[in-house]
């Protein structure tokens, strides 16, 4: 057995029983949390309920929370409303998926590599550089917009896919999260052992560290996808064929109250991909648990 295998062995079911809740306590907790959580789900239910409202209920003031006579009219009207766009709807959909997937994937890889160097690689100036990355989070974005716009136009990425993707890659938050997670979750002894066994730096990072920190990048996957999926560029995209789905669908709500039903349908449909990514990411966060019993 190599040293890595000894440290990185599958988790044994512990003999010791932790202070866990009883089944009854668990059920009580679930009910309590479920009721508290119900308060949080209100807007989602309101959106779904409104998307099924017929026109007279939409015009009602004040709006009723729940739909009285549900109809799928708004859903059926959506394709007609979107028919006279310059570019087929599928193109906007593709743009959104492409932008969200590409920037999320590149961001996770770039941020994880940098985080690994900050956490485990002893390089000159690493600590200072990491603090700069971390503190950059605290600088308000508003006044950065103008200098950023100048940079976009200087390097010629205005009105290309790159203007969505490139600025999303070096997001401080992702690097910070991964670094903190590696600090507490990956023992230095493991890295040393891998080194003794002759694994290269990159191999150690990719095949040993990344699987351990899967809960972190699965969480990051959700944050990044959610943000990029809903991105509406301001002044950096002019070509119709490069616009994203949320950008196009937001024009619906500008169509006044008569279209508010369909605008709500669009809102509901736009929520579906982030919800799917949420479920995938959370299932994976949990599944990592059993497989990574690390002995320090």
């Amino acid at each position: 057995m190599t040293k890595i295998q000894r440290i990185f062995k599958p988790h044994n079911k512990s003999q010791y029983k932790r202070y866990t809740r009883s089944t009854g306590g668990n059920a009580l907790f679930f009910i309590f949390l479920f009721l508290a959580g119900a308060f949080s789900v209100v807007p989602l239910i309101y959106c779904i309920s409104t998307s099924f409202k017929p026109i007279d209920e939409l015009l009602l003031f004040p709006p009723e929370f729940f739909v009285k006579r549900p109809t799928i009219e708004n859903y059926l009207a959506l394709p007609t409303l979107l028919n006279n766009l310059g570019v087929p709807l599928a193109r906007y959909f593709f743009n959104s998926v492409f932008v969200a997937v590409a920037s999320t994937a590149l961001h996770i890889i770039a941020a994880a590599m940098a985080a690994y160097v900050f956490s485990k690689g002893k390089i000159h100036g690493g600590t200072v550089l990491f603090l700069i990355v971390q503190f950059a989070l605290l600088y308000n974005g508003y006044t950065l917009a103008i200098p950023q716009y100048f940079i976009f136009s200087k390097i010629g990425i205005i009105d290309t896919y790159l203007v969505y993707i490139l600025p999303a890659i070096p997001s401080s938050m992702g690097c910070f999260l991964m670094k903190q997670y590696m600090d507490s979750g990956v023992p230095d002894a493991l890295i040393e052992a891998a080194c003794i066994d002759g694994a290269s730096i990159f191999r150690t990072f990719w095949t040993i560290v990344m699987p351990i920190v899967k809960p972190a990048w699965m969480t990051l996957l959700l944050f990044s996808f959610k943000d990029m999926w809903s991105i509406i560029p301001s002044g950096t995209i002019f070509s119709e064929q490069l616009k994203t789905l949320p950008q196009v669908l937001s024009t619906l709500s500008a169509g006044g109250i008569a279209r508010s039903g369909s605008a709500m349908v669009a809102t509901v449909l736009l929520m579906i991909p982030p919800i799917i990514v949420f479920v995938i990411s959370q299932k994976n966060v949990i599944e990592t648990m059993g497989s990574s019993g690390i002995k320090e």
Binding site: I109, A110, A111, M113, A114, Y116, V117, G121, I123, L129, I132, V133, A136, Y139, L144, P147, Q148, I151, I155, L166, P167, I169, P170, S172, C175, I201, F202, F205
Partner: peptide, 17 residues
């Protein structure tokens, strides 16, 4: 390994700040 993140970080965050 640091390069992709840091180079873009300098370009899109440090310089604007």
């Amino acid at each position: 390994m640091l390069f992709p993140f840091i180079s873009l970080f300098v370009l899109f965050t440090v310089v604007p700040v």
